[in-house]
Amino acid sequence: NKFNKELQWATWEILNLPNLNEEQVKAFIDSLRDDPSQSANLLAEAKKLNDAQA
């Protein structure tokens, strides 16, 4: 389904953001699992944090 694909994509993207530490990655992945419908928003937040920590 749509959420499953978005969840998989967001998870992959977050795992590959180079500037997030392990705790941050875990927190984003946990949030994705808690509410897959928020995957686009969570991915945007993760990318923003990744850029800020570059």
Rank of each mutant, 00 (worst) to 15 (best):
N1I: 04
N1T: 04
N1R: 02
N1M: 02
N1P: 14
K2I: 15
K2G: 15
K2F: 10
K2A: 15
K2W: 15
K2T: 11
F3N: 14
F3S: 14
F3K: 11
F3R: 09
F3G: 14
F3T: 14
F3A: 14
F3H: 15
F3D: 15
F3W: 05
F3P: 15
N4S: 05
N4R: 03
N4D: 15
N4K: 03
N4Y: 11
N4I: 11
N4M: 08
K5L: 03
K5R: 03
K5F: 04
E6I: 14
E6N: 05
E6L: 14
E6W: 15
E6Q: 06
E6F: 15
E6T: 05
E6A: 06
L7H: 04
L7F: 10
L7V: 13
L7I: 08
L7D: 05
L7A: 11
L7T: 05
Q8D: 04
Q8H: 03
Q8A: 11
Q8N: 03
W9V: 07
W9Y: 11
W9I: 12
W9H: 13
W9Q: 11
W9P: 02
W9D: 04
W9F: 10
W9E: 09
W9A: 12
A10M: 07
A10G: 02
A10Y: 12
A10P: 01
A10T: 08
T11R: 07
T11M: 13
T11Q: 04
T11V: 07
T11H: 03
T11A: 06
T11W: 06
T11D: 02
T11F: 12
W12M: 06
W12V: 03
W12P: 01
W12S: 05
W12K: 03
W12N: 04
E13P: 01
E13S: 12
E13N: 09
E13F: 14
E13A: 14
E13W: 15
I14M: 05
I14F: 03
I14E: 01
I14H: 01
L15Q: 13
L15A: 06
L15F: 07
L15N: 06
L15G: 06
N16W: 04
N16R: 13
N16Q: 09
N16S: 10
L17T: 01
L17H: 03
L17I: 01
L17A: 01
P18H: 11
P18S: 09
P18E: 09
P18T: 10
P18R: 06
P18W: 08
P18K: 12
N19R: 04
N19T: 04
N19W: 08
N19E: 04
N19F: 09
N19Y: 13
N19K: 04
L20N: 00
L20R: 00
L20H: 00
L20K: 00
L20V: 02
L20S: 00
L20F: 01
N21S: 04
N21T: 12
N21Y: 10
N21P: 03
N21V: 06
N21L: 08
E22I: 08
E22D: 12
E22H: 11
E22Q: 11
E22A: 12
E22M: 12
E23I: 12
E23F: 13
E23S: 12
E23G: 12
E23V: 11
E23L: 09
Q24V: 03
Q24M: 04
Q24H: 03
Q24I: 03
Q24A: 03
Q24E: 03
V25K: 14
V25D: 00
V25A: 11
V25R: 15
K26G: 06
K26H: 10
K26A: 12
K26I: 09
K26M: 09
K26S: 06
K26N: 09
K26W: 13
A27T: 10
A27Y: 14
A27N: 09
A27E: 07
A27M: 12
A27K: 11
A27V: 10
F28T: 01
F28R: 01
F28E: 00
F28I: 04
F28A: 02
I29H: 03
I29W: 03
I29T: 05
I29K: 03
I29G: 01
I29Q: 03
I29Y: 03
I29M: 08
D30E: 12
D30N: 15
D30Q: 14
S31D: 08
S31P: 02
S31W: 09
L32A: 05
L32T: 01
L32V: 04
L32I: 07
L32F: 03
L32W: 02
L32H: 01
L32S: 01
R33N: 15
R33W: 15
R33G: 07
R33Y: 15
R33Q: 12
R33I: 13
R33K: 13
R33S: 11
D34L: 11
D34A: 14
D34W: 12
D34S: 13
D34N: 13
D34P: 02
D34K: 15
D34I: 13
D34V: 12
D35P: 01
D35S: 09
D35F: 07
D35Q: 09
D35N: 11
D35I: 05
D35W: 06
D35K: 09
D35E: 07
P36W: 06
P36L: 08
P36H: 04
P36R: 02
P36N: 03
P36E: 03
S37E: 05
Q38P: 01
Q38S: 10
Q38G: 07
Q38K: 13
Q38Y: 08
S39M: 14
S39A: 09
S39K: 05
S39F: 15
S39N: 07
A40L: 14
A40D: 05
A40N: 08
A40E: 07
N41L: 12
N41M: 13
N41S: 11
L42G: 01
L42D: 00
L42I: 11
L42F: 09
L43M: 07
L43E: 01
L43P: 01
L43N: 01
L43Y: 08
A44E: 08
A44H: 13
E45V: 13
E45R: 15
E45I: 14
E45L: 15
E45A: 14
E45W: 15
A46E: 00
A46L: 02
A46M: 02
A46R: 00
A46P: 00
A46V: 02
A46Y: 03
A46F: 02
A46D: 00
A46T: 01
A46I: 02
K47D: 02
K47T: 07
K47V: 10
K47M: 14
K47R: 13
K48Q: 10
K48N: 07
K48W: 09
K48I: 11
L49K: 05
L49V: 09
L49H: 03
L49P: 00
N50S: 11
N50L: 01
N50F: 01
N50E: 01
N50W: 01
N50M: 01
N50Y: 01
N50P: 00
N50V: 01
N50T: 01
N50R: 01
N50G: 02
N50Q: 02
D51A: 12
D51V: 08
D51L: 15
D51G: 09
D51E: 12
A52E: 11
A52K: 14
A52L: 12
A52R: 12
Q53A: 06
Q53T: 06
Q53I: 10
Q53K: 04
Q53E: 05
Q53R: 04
Q53S: 07
A54T: 10
A54Y: 11
A54I: 10
A54N: 09
A54V: 08
A54Q: 11
A54P: 07
A54S: 12
